[in-house]
Design a protein around this nucleic acid. Structure first.
Length: 570
RNA sequence: GCGGUGGUAGUCUAGCCUGGUCUAGGACGCCGGCCUUCCAAGCCGGCGACCCGGGUUCAAAUCCCGGCCACCGCACCA
């Protein structure tokens, strides 16, 4: 019989203080999870690894509110697109996605249609409930965002953010100034996001409130070679491209260099961050064999993305689970916010050498036309300024041929204009940066780290073989028996380790074997045991969680030795 | 959301069908003590539960209804 790891793990998580369903004493609430003392520690360690990795890339951290005024999500497209059109059978009350139902029945694409239009199509084509043949209700849109109101008068609508990303986009102007107008630069935010999932399931895999670490990398779309790609080009990754999914060709293993050359991945800029994400997951302690990159099919991509690779982690229980999405968002978000807010979210790109271009400059000879046009003169002059090269040429031609031109109802003569050809020095252009977004879920990797770490020996020992530096208790200090002088010495050793920065515990209760088991179960990598020899020569033993082997070291050298064992490069 | 199954201390569970000696039993755990010199030993004492609400009944952990939560299947998963 196969042991159900999920059962053992969720029991362990509850019992030993890792994580459990929220609001237990009131019956619970679906889609919400609490992190206990050990779980919260691990979660913070995961966040820390991600934070430090991006800080090492020179990226900036940002923190913005969870509650967001609705304009932001109108601009981002979430109000319109982050929705599912639903219908309900009036007879058996089964619910369906209206768009899917229509697509199945009529084989037409109804993407982007309004609820009224979808309802009309259902009525006109007599689509009925596929279960019982009953009449269907009108279509309504269900938005997955939690709504709220800002202030006391319910006049200002807001939403709990469904992604942390928008907090970064709306701050682009300041961030760009902080980056001193130099692309590329990256900004990340670690925080909560909220989605009112229709049906959360599978433990912590689909939550209504969850933690994300989202990174927005702003770059010039003309510069898609990553300067440090060489550092990662030989990294082998497991890819599952769109074509391989459609034709059932299975996964491939290639170096990132090949992946770009063969066109699986769009460019080295994208590939570089794939490598980075993979390294972070490895650093967290996800086994390499449990990591793959799957390219999202066009129909599963979010509204803002034109290409997305999911980084999936394997779960014995749930199969491959999306844990990180690396999305190419193009200039979608910045352009939308520019339009909606009127802010200038462009970046000046300086050319290597200024370009000299000849340009026609046409303006009114104010001395002549001023008295004639009076206050309209200024307006017409502005109009000339906005004319394109082509329109100006047309105007000049008209003046040369007929001697006159009509602008805004005024007939003007050649002498009314000053026509000059000037040389203009153009030092650069304004562009809307493109965005590459690695977006980490934190809760899913947390669960998958535990699941992948849970180990059951042949002799039935159940322990958490979590990567040593990720353990929530890093070292347990144990007197072999609860007797003096061992207890006092042990307590002092424990206190020393705490002061040296370790997450340590002191424990004298129960037999030594039992205590070892207790700390193995929660993944404590080392137990330091104070035994009879300790009072004689000031040495203690360090027991390894995985091998159960012990080494003996001097107390003075203990902190250094443990640091090396737990955090040392291995 | 729909359908199925279930919900008893921190955990696993007995009891439920056939309502009443259930003051709800056990094991593990946890706390205190004794003992114990290296991998879940032993002894003594203690802690701790019928998911929530309503109904039926003289009497409900037990029967009925509703809710909540969990698991499975369907649907859903920007």
């Amino acid at each position: 019989m196969k042991i159900d790891k999920y059962e053992i793990l969720s029991d362990l998580m509850r019992r030993r203080g890792f994580a459990w369903g929220s609001f237990e004493i009131y019956g619970g609430a679906r889609g919400f999870y609490d992190y206990g003392p050990l779980g919260a520690t691990i979660k913070r360690k995961i966040e820390r690894k991600i934070r430090e990795a991006f800080q090492r890339e020179g990226f900036f951290e940002l923190e913005t509110p969870d509650i967001t005024p609705e304009e932001v999500f109108i601009a981002s497209g979430h109000v319109e697109k982050f929705v599912d059109p639903l219908v309900e059978c009036t007879k058996c009350h089964a619910r369906y996605r209206a768009d899917h139902l229509i697509e199945e029945n009529l084989d037409i694409d109804v993407e982007g249609l309004s609820a009224e239009e979808l309802t009309k199509i259902i009525r006109e084509n007599g689509i009925k409930c596929p279960q019982c043949g009953g009449e269907l209700s009108d279509v309504w849109y269900f938005n997955l965002m939690f709504e709220t109101y800002i202030g006391p008068y319910k006049d200002k609508k807001g939403y709990l953010r469904p992604e942390t990303a928008q907090g970064i986009f709306v701050n682009f102007k300041r961030l760009n100034a902080f980056a001193r107008n130099k692309l590329p630069f990256g900004v990340f935010q670690i925080g909560k996001a909220y989605r009112n999932e229709i049906s959360p399931r599978q433990g912590m895999i689909r939550l209504r409130e969850f933690t994300q670490a989202e990174v927005e990398i702003f770059f010039n779309p003309k510069e898609t070679e990553h300067p440090h790609f060489d550092e990662v080009k030989d990294e082998v990754v497991r890819l599952y491209p769109i074509e391989h999914q459609l034709k059932n060709l299975g996964m491939i293993e290639v170096t990132l260099e090949e992946a770009v050359k063969k066109g699986y991945v769009m460019n080295t800029f994208f590939a570089y961050y794939m490598a980075m994400v993979k390294r972070i997951l490895l650093d967290i302690g996800i086994p390499e064999k449990a990591i793959r990159f799957r390219q999202q099919l066009p129909e599963e991509r979010a509204h803002y993305s034109s290409d997305t690779w999911d980084v999936e982690i394997y779960s014995e229980r749930f199969g491959w689970i999306e844990c990180v999405g690396i999305a190419y968002r193009g200039d979608y978000d910045l352009s939308r916010h520019m339009k909606m807010s009127g802010a200038d979210l462009t970046v000046m790109i300086h050319y290597d050498e200024p370009k000299i271009v000849k340009k026609l400059k046409v303006s009114l000879n104010m001395k002549r036309v001023g008295p004639k046009l009076k206050k309209d003169a200024k307006r017409i002059n502005e109009k000339l300024k906005e004319m394109s090269e082509e329109e100006l040429k047309k105007l000049i031609k008209s003046l040369e041929v007929t001697g006159k031109a009509i602008i805004d109802g005024y007939e003007l003569e050649k002498e009314d204009f000053i026509i000059k050809e000037v040389e203009e020095k153009i030092t650069g252009e304004k562009i809307v940066p493109h965005v590459l977004e690695p977006s980490f879920g934190i809760d899913r990797p947390f669960y998958l780290l535990l699941e992948n770490s849970l180990t059951i020996d042949e002799d039935g020992r159940i322990y958490l073989k979590i990567k040593k530096d990720m353990a929530p208790i890093e070292v347990a200090v144990l007197p072999l028996v609860a007797k003096e002088p061992l207890t006092t010495i042990a307590y002092n050793v424990f206190r020393t380790l705490q002061k040296a920065g370790f997450i340590a515990v002191y424990d004298e209760k129960d037999t030594i074997g039992r205590r070892y088991a207790r700390y193995d179960e929660i993944g404590t990598p080392y137990c330091v045991t104070i035994d009879n020899q300790t009072p004689e020569d000031n040495t203690v033993t360090i027991r390894d969680r995985d091998t159960r082997e012990q080494i003996r070291v001097k107390i003075d050298e203990l902190p250094e030795k443990l640091k090396e064992l737990i955090f040392g490069s291995s």
